[in-house]
Design a protein around this nucleic acid. Sequence first.
RNA 1: GCCGCCUUAGCUCAGUUGGUUAGAGCGCCUGAUUGUGGAUCAGGAGGUCCCUGGUUCGAGCCCAGGAGGUGGUACCA
Length: 546
Amino acid sequence: MAKTRKQPRPKAETPKGFRDYFGAEVTQRAEMLNVIAAVYHRYGFDALESSAVETVEALGKFLPDVDRPNEGVFAWQEEDAAWLALRYDLTAPLARVYAQHRNDLPIPYRRYAMGPVWRNEKPGPGRFRQFYQCDADTVGSASMAADAEICAMLSDTLEAVGIARGDYVIRINNRKVLNGVMEVAGVLDPSDPEKFAHERGIVLRAIDKLDRLGPEGVRALLGKGREDESGDFTKGAGLGEDQVEVVLSFVLGKERIAEQLASIAEPAGKLNADWEAKYRSISETIEVGDRKSLSVDNQEFTNRLTCTYLRSIVDNSVVGAEGVAELEQIADLLAAQGYGPDRIVIDPSVVRGLGYYTGPVYEAELTFEIFDDKGRKRQFGSVAGGGRYDDLVKRFTGQAVPATGVSIGVDRLLAALREKGRITAQEIGPVVVTVMDRDRMADYQAMVAELRNAGVRAEVYLGNPKNFGNQLKYADRRNSPVAIIEGGDEKARGVVQIKDLILGAQIAQNATLEEWKERPSQFEVARGDLVAKVREILVAHDLGQA
RNA sequence: GCCGCCUUAGCUCAGUUGGUUAGAGCGCCUGAUUGUGGAUCAGGAGGUCCCUGGUUCGAGCCCAGGAGGUGGUACCA
């Protein structure tokens, strides 16, 4: 016989950056998507499910001067030479859908969308190449009310999925204010927008890193550059000291205001008298840094204060002043609905993705502390973000269409809730009906059918029934709450044994072998009472409805 | 992309100046118990020491290159 060449076995592995999701991970995500969608829907947004594949052209991801798409997208070339790609977010597809169907869609068009997106990037801890997003956007409204509404909705959504008020904060900034600051700092010339574009990029990225690098790190990046611990040098924006100071006074606005509140003896020279009078009155009644202790009136005041402060910086810039006015509008609209700075706060250090945003930008951050396996403190970054992008649809239609929206990173949010202990990845298994007599399988199937009809998750043990112990081990591994036993004995007497596995585990914690062998967690009931007893146990463990 | 660290059993990790047959804990399997999971006890299986080459009488250990992982940094529509 000819030797058949052994084919090398394929290695069973998930490609790097991807992962498999099991049991509770899948159901919990689906549940979370439902909760989020329900809030979006309640706010008047319509569902939209668009194609997962887009033309690279529609995504706008062709590299400049090259006929190849941007790395970072999963793309491939069709035989007719067209490039297709997996979507990398849900916003670009929305712009395409809106442009394509605009004659049939209401204006404004409000839609929500959810699903996986793909990015061909270096994966990191908690960063995958496929992940779920859940977006809501309003296309065709330039009103700040649209932006304020998105922020309010984001707040509601986070609380709906189980993030307690005070465990998160939504921070708002405005790209126009940022541009105003750039103008004042001399890195943006309104008459020549292209000039200093490179420097502005560095400045924006530097601001984005305030969290990680601190004020001094940002200062270095704004100036000559910064060397990190590994000796790697990052070139800075090369700003002069005065310029750096302007940007920093902006970015650190939140802290500066707090400082000023703390020391009434050192009022800020730049701020006007009106402001001083107000802050004098509130600084006597609040603990600085403890936002929760502010009364509602004063909370509202915090955002006003920030606006006043920002205006003092960008006073000489037209777009800057416009941006501040927009922020004020949003803050007022939110305050009128009762969303104060304990939930939504104006924070000049928010920059966000830099790309297509043209006005207000928002970011939701979780504020509770979590610890990793090694006990180190870790911070959860942002779990949601968004903003106004008034130019995205224009790429298709040539007409400016204002739009604003938000995107929630569902997987990160889930991970956060798990780490917080709000939900456990452990899934409760089904009730397991054990098989004592192989030829009475029909009896066992009948039991399981009764349980299922009563709405109880249940299954018959389908493995090799020879070793009875293994059946209970199986139930244990499945994290089953209850096991059912009906041997010849019980059958003859018309009863069944019902084993409360959760109670059993609890008893075993500190029971002797003898006590355990007594089987205090096992109950004998009449065959007819099977379903009732099982439900009773489930209810006792808070696992089912009565 | 750049810099550092790491790679030994399913998992977490020991492993002496380079020396015979490479270890532990946990997990897994079997039995004590063919009708009782998680406890206890006894036993057992499980290894390309990341790969390739080099030095050496001899390499898990030393050297070179490569791969993979990880941390930092950069980029991220």
